[in-house]
Design a binder for these strands. Structure first.
Length: 376
DNA sequence: TCTGGGGTCCTAGGACCC
DNA sequence: TCTGGGGTCCTAGGACCC
């Protein structure tokens, strides 16, 4: 793997793109960076002979779904979350590659290290996305260009960047012209450009909401933004109703979340064929509990709530949880509680998915320096 | 053709306490 | 004996995101 050239590291820091130090609060400028077809791009670096071909990263089982498809494969209608069986029918000539998440995590870490060398305020979202706060930079556009070039130079990976006055506008801008996009939008510019687009364009408005809106005759973002708030409140509840209208108007005051505390951890598996009865399920529950506890113990995480999750053959999902008096992460306890919950639920139909979860994770012990600050 | 795995957040109802 | 409201905790389901 190429290292970041020394002369690139910190270039933005020392340069005139740098944050302007003054009393007045500068207007907010956020960038959203999205690596283009990340898993496929990483695989193509290992197997350059596949460049230009339809490539699909997907598991091999009968119920696998596509993790990422190359842009060549997308032309055949193969996208993330397409069932792999369907992908094979749509694009039989595609090259199927098994996912290697350990490798993707490592490559993601390299990218995020490049970003951290370039900007101070960074929110990492999953393996292939990040928000950058460029507020106060004299030349935020130039800084974002520089970041994009640095990622390409250091990792060989291409990304799309969106710039805007909020996370929402930046995110939508980064999606607008990918791959290899670079789009800056104002809030008004975003409203205008996407007035005719489906509400589903907005992250946070999913397929269910799009359908409900459609049934109400609201089919575009422009229409949603102009709908009376009272009507949306009646349809979606007081909070969600107001929220949907704000999103459609590209109103978004969220700050970057520089660090996040994990609240739950889980392991789940979908079976190649449905299982029936406790006798078939218990050994799986045992294995999942073990995987989960090994990881919890390694990171010294404990949680007070143990839960299970089942998906039946009709795709209905059922969860059961029990909160304990103390936070736990030991296999004996997690396995015992999980198996009691499973026995009590005693699924009446064939089961396609089983999962174990520990939630209500205790907050990690603060570092000594933090404790000092708390006492001051 | 069916629909992964690992998460977060929201809602709603019930228990319980003041 | 009946009737309250508010706050917190817990559980179950579901929408959504990457």
């Amino acid at each position: 793997m190429e290292r970041v050239p020394a002369d690139l590291v910190g270039k933005v820091r020392s340069h005139s793109y740098r944050r302007d130090v003054s009393d007045a609060k500068p207007p907010r400028v956020y960038a959203h960076l999205d690596l283009d077809a990340f898993y496929v791009s990483v695989e193509l670096q290992r197997r350059p002979e596949l460049r230009g071909l339809p490539v699909v990263v997907a598991g091999s089982g009968p119920r696998a779904v596509v993790t990422t498809a190359s842009y060549e494969a997308r032309r055949f209608g193969v996208f993330s979350a397409t069932p792999a069986s369907r992908a094979r029918r749509l694009c039989p000539q595609a090259v199927f590659v098994a996912p290697d998440f350990d490798h993707y995590r490592e490559r993601s870490r390299q990218v995020m290290d490049v970003l951290r060398a370039q900007v101070d305020l960074l929110e990492v979202v999953g393996l292939d996305e990040a928000y950058l706060d460029l507020s106060g930079y004299a030349r935020p556009r130039a800084a974002a260009r520089q970041v994009k070039a640095a990622v390409q130079q250091a990792t060989g990976l291409c990304c799309s960047i969106g710039l805007g006055p909020s996370k929402l506008v930046a995110k939508v801008a980064s999606d607008a012209e990918k791959p290899d996009g670079f789009v800056e939008l104002t809030r008004a510019g975003a409203r205008e450009r996407f007035a005719g687009a489906s509400p589903g364009l907005i992250p946070g408005i999913g397929p269910k909401s799009v359908e409900r809106l459609k049934r109400e005759g609201i089919e575009t973002l422009g229409a949603l933004g102009e709908t009376a708030e009272m009507r949306l409140r009646e349809l979606f509840g007081p909070r969600m109703g107001a929220h949907l209208r704000s999103l459609a108007r590209f109103e978004d005051e969220r700050e970057l979340e520089l660090s996040r505390v994990r609240k739950s951890e889980s392991r789940e598996t979908t079976f190649d064929r449905d299982l029936r009865g406790l006798a078939e399920l218990m050994p799986v529950l045992e294995r999942l509990s073990e995987q989960l506890c090994v990881d919890l113990e390694r990171h010294e995480r404990r949680g007070r709530t143990v839960g299970i999750k089942l998906r039946l053959d009709d795709f209905s999902t059922h969860t059961r949880a029990r909160s304990l008096l103390v936070a736990v992460n030991d296999l004996d306890t997690v396995r015992r509680v999980a198996s009691e919950l499973l026995s009590e639920l005693d699924p009446p139909r064939p089961v396609r998915l089983l999962g174990v979860r520990v939630a209500g994770l205790d907050v990690p012990a603060p570092a000594p320096s933090d404790q000092l600050e708390l006492t001051l």
